[in-house]
């Protein structure tokens, strides 16, 4: 790990948005944890000052002693608050793709390699949540970030903070993980029928509708619809097979961008997304066509995901 130069260290942005994105895992150390007194801490300092004043006016040594004790407590709390974060190891986890408008969830694994319990940690991405990490244990939290547009979505800075033990100081560590996930277009709310693609394409061997006619068996490949699995053979212990339907006469769908209704690109993509989801739900095989991309008809999760990714990044 390279150590930043002094100039970089003094940049104000470090305090709020953390250092540059770094490959995880991140161990919280003195370079990443910042501490400042809270409002309550400042009031505590005020209380100490008031006690000192009383001690001065009355020449009372025991009140002096109490005031000094409280100021030492104030001071030592800095160390304790720092300790409530120091040594934690944070690592980003998997992030699932979402549709635009949904909140993207990012898993963060927090590992506590030390023998002290971590109390009342506050972790914030866009909304905060509280958690505790017992000594020598792991906790995974899911943080959500709202998405608006399709494409790559990058979540901002994750801030882990704690005011343990006395609430006089807040230690925080802004961490810029590489929190990235793909956002698919928002599926259109309209339930339109699948597009009717002109006959030139049908002549090429693809029909509009998938046939119900049983065509044959092929060995199962990941991504084949579950309802096409030939369970009888599986029950007999002959392995997994998928039923194939269609053939010359069976109908197939061809989802084409050019035939998607909509006023602009986004609306069209949204409609395309809707079709892809519907087709997947019905377990249909479908071809997929965007300007500059053509995917032959297929079915299954893998195919669907390829289509959705293409839509997201179009």
């Amino acid at each position: 790990m390279n150590i930043p130069s002094l100039k970089k260290r003094l940049q104000l942005s470090r305090f709020f948005s953390g250092e540059k994105t770094i490959v995880t895992p991140i161990t919280l150390n003195q370079r990443r944890v910042f501490i400042l007194p809270t409002h309550r801490g400042l009031n505590f300092a005020l209380l100490t000052a008031l006690l000192l004043l009383i001690a001065f006016v009355y020449n009372n040594n025991l009140i002096y002693l109490l005031a000094f004790l409280l100021s030492s407590v104030f001071f030592i709390t800095i160390l304790h608050t720092y300790r409530s974060l120091a040594g934690l190891v944070l690592q980003e986890g998997q992030a699932k793709a979402v549709f635009a408008g949904e909140a993207a969830g990012f898993d963060i694994h927090i590992n506590n390699p030390l023998t002290i319990d971590r109390q009342y940690l506050h972790i914030v991405l866009e909304e905060g949540q509280y958690l505790s990490v017992k000594a020598l244990s792991n906790v995974t939290v899911t943080l959500y970030s709202a998405t608006q547009k399709r494409g790559w979505h990058t979540a901002g800075t994750v801030t882990l903070s704690s005011t343990y033990p006395l609430g006089l100081f807040r230690a925080w560590s802004p961490i810029r993980f590489n929190l990235k996930t793909l956002v698919y277009p928002k599926p259109s709310a309209l339930e339109l029928p699948f597009p009717e693609v002109p006959s030139e394409q049908a002549q090429q061997g693809f029909s509009l509708k998938e046939g119900d006619e049983f065509h044959g068996l092929k060995s199962y490949e990941p991504g084949d619809p579950i309802k096409h699995i030939y369970w009888k053979a599986f029950a007999k212990g002959q392995g997994l097979f998928s039923k194939q339907f269609g053939g010359e006469n069976s109908a197939q769908i061809w989802l084409d961008y050019n035939y998607a209704p909509g006023h602009d690109t986004e609306e069209r993509l949204s409609q395309m997304c809707r079709w892809v989801i519907d087709a997947e739900r019905l377990g249909l095989a479908f071809g997929f066509s965007l300007p500059g991309l053509k995917l032959p008809p297929d079915s299954g999760l893998l195919h669907t995901r390829k289509c959705l990714e293409a839509l997201a990044l179009f």
């Binding site: 000094f68 030492s72 407590v73 001071f75 030592i76 109390q119 009342y120 509280y130 343990y164 033990p165």
Partner: peptide, 28 residues
Amino acid sequence: VTINSSKPEALVALKTAGLIIVQSLPMA
């Protein structure tokens, strides 16, 4: 301490506070 803990437990809080006080005494 109890205000700033996830699960306020009297004995643990007293222990923590006592520890902080003992650590503060030399400086005081």
